[in-house]
Computed example of a mutant assay.
Amino acid sequence: MREIPQQVAESNGDRRPAAAVRRREALGLLLAAGSGSRYGSPKVLAHEGLWLRSAVEALLGGGCGHVLVVLGAAETPLPPGAEAVHAHRWADGVGESLRAGLRAAADHADARCAVIHLVDLPDVGSDVVARVLLAAADSPNGLARAFYGGRPGHPVVAARRHWEPMAGAAAGETGAREYLRRHGEMPTRVQCEDLATGRDQDGPDRNAPPGEPPLPYSGRQVHAFDGIEDSR
């Protein structure tokens, strides 16, 4: 597996990704469809949408021209530059969310690569996205993945030729894991631990105000802004 050491990534990753990939050619794919059962509520709604906005801003600021947000358990307004994709079988696992997102991405004819990201990584910013996107552009295989101290994480950048087989391999809670495992020598490892921890927020929200723990998710979300109701 090709690896970009941290010191090289530092010199390359902060360059504008447009030097290698034109903005319209990089499409952000944000997976945000889950119910957040361990967290206590859908993470796309966390902190009144702060994680959602941060993730979209990271993708756009890192070089993506547009962002597809895969929704499922909850509906919510999206920031400018983002478009909703609905994973109707979201409860089957993140693999279905990835499959829905990649199929929707195929309709964007100008897109040459997808920057796959998760909504529950609030400390991953645009500098990480830019670094991994540039590494993917330099990779002959068109695959690159952020690593944090030897631990694989997100974002993952995949050239268009990988989308169909990646979608085909996605199942249950494995997401792109099985596809990346099969191609273990292909993705470029991009060291990003100097920029973020890359750790997902998977437990109860420790940042909730004292005495106000997050409400348990009932599987039903009603939003007054547009009357959308989701009771899956």
Rank of each mutant, 00 (worst) to 15 (best):
V44D: 04
L31S: 06
H66A: 05
G184D: 14
Q7K: 07
R177I: 03
R206M: 11
D14V: 05
G227D: 08
E75W: 13
G153S: 08
S231D: 13
D127K: 09
A171I: 03
A73H: 07
A114L: 14
L60I: 15
C192P: 00
H117P: 02
Y217L: 00
R2G: 00
W163A: 10
A18Q: 15
A136F: 01
R151L: 14
R131E: 06
D92W: 07
P155Y: 02
P42G: 03
P210G: 06
A91F: 04
G150D: 04
L59E: 10
P5S: 04
G61Y: 06
T197A: 05
R181T: 14
L68D: 06
D200H: 02
A73E: 04
L98C: 08
H86R: 12
A176H: 10
E25R: 15
V222K: 13
L143T: 12
Q7M: 05
G61F: 11
L215M: 06
L98Q: 09
S231R: 15
Q191Y: 07
R177F: 08
A84Q: 02
N207E: 10
G211C: 11
R99Y: 07
A73W: 08
E48F: 06
L118Q: 15
A20L: 13
R182M: 11
G211M: 11
L52H: 07
V67Y: 00
A169V: 03
R189T: 04
S11A: 13
G93P: 14
P122V: 12
L195T: 09
P77I: 09
